[in-house]
């Protein structure tokens, strides 16, 4: 009822030079039951140091969009640039830290060994690796668990280890696909805070998928609402919240208003998907 967005036409006024720029990006998967339109005409521009959340019903293409940015999928139409390069060039420049929807730890490596793997591949020396491993393990509250094997950890702990792995090397762009989905509320709160602190400190650009409205509102500078069949952006909500965000901000009036707006956007999207 407020300014209803014109879908698929969001040339946003990004604060800084765009790091990620999607223009008319579509992605269709050919399947046995006919083509699946995972993304349709997605336009989005994400600036340096932005924290952008993607929210929307299951199957609306959130994962697919993140994968497209990371050059794990190729758009079937439209253009996507990252730091002015193609996503694949950005991948080769090691621009991405990607946290997948499932932990994906290597069972034959300890937690520390798992975190060390990308560092070994990228050629960090041993002392540097160890310092980084200790730092990120502390960050995700797994300080004691470096020498354990993944199967000795709970699902949520494994997920945190996979977050630590993506944080260990200094990728410009962090892409996180429901990273906190498997965590309890308290740990989730703490990790939300830790992530905000890390973001404020390092100025990285973050793309973040979540199903939780409060989480999206609490973390983001912008919230992208998506809807399925075909997967598209139906609303982009700028957050007026300051960058400095204590947990209590979630009790404020403006927080409630933002949450309401995201919920409305999601409702509209759900309705549109039912045709």
């Amino acid at each position: 009822m407020m300014n209803r967005p014109e879908p698929a036409l969001h040339l946003s006024q990004a604060p800084a030079a765009p790091v990620i720029e999607a223009r008319g990006v579509s992605l269709t998967f050919p399947t046995a039951d006919g083509p699946v339109h995972a993304l349709k005409d997605v336009n989005l521009s994400i600036g340096q140091g932005e924290f952008v959340s993607f929210i929307g019903p299951s199957g609306c293409g959130k994962t697919t969009f993140l994968r497209t940015i990371a050059a794990l999928e190729r758009p079937t139409a439209g253009t996507l640039t990252v730091n002015g390069m193609t996503p694949d060039q950005a991948r080769r420049a090691r621009a991405y830290g990607y946290v997948f929807q499932a932990p994906g730890l290597y069972p034959w490596r300890t937690i520390a060994g798992n975190i060390s793997l990308p560092l070994e591949i990228m050629g960090f020396d041993k002392a540097d690796r160890e310092a980084r491993i200790a730092r990120v393990l502390e960050l995700v509250e797994l300080g004691q668990f470096g020498s354990r094997y993944p199967w000795q950890l709970s699902g949520g702990m494994q997920q945190r280890a996979s977050i630590a792995r993506a944080l260990a090397f200094d990728a410009d762009i962090l892409l996180m696909d429901e990273p906190f989905g498997a965590l309890d509320e308290i740990v989730r709160d703490r990790l939300n805070e830790a992530l905000l602190a890390l973001w404020a400190r390092t100025g990285r650009t973050i793309g973040f998928v979540t199903h939780s409205i409060p989480e999206a509102v609490y973390l983001s500078t912008r919230i992208v609402v998506m809807s399925p069949r075909p997967g598209r952006i139906t609303d982009v909500i700028e957050s007026p919240l300051p960058r400095e965000r204590p947990l209590e901000i979630r009790d404020s009036k403006i927080f409630a208003e933002l949450s309401h707006r995201v919920r409305e956007g999601l409702r509209a999207g759900h309705g549109a998907g039912d045709d």
Partner: peptide
């Protein structure tokens, strides 16, 4: 190895030899 593990390697820009040594061979 499952596709996600290959995707991880890809996102780190690991070369073929590294994928073989760190992922394919152990699995």
């Amino acid at each position: 190895p499952d596709p996600m593990q290959f995707d991880l390697m890809r996102s780190w820009n690991a070369n073929g030899g590294q994928v073989l040594r760190f992922l394919r061979f152990p699995s």
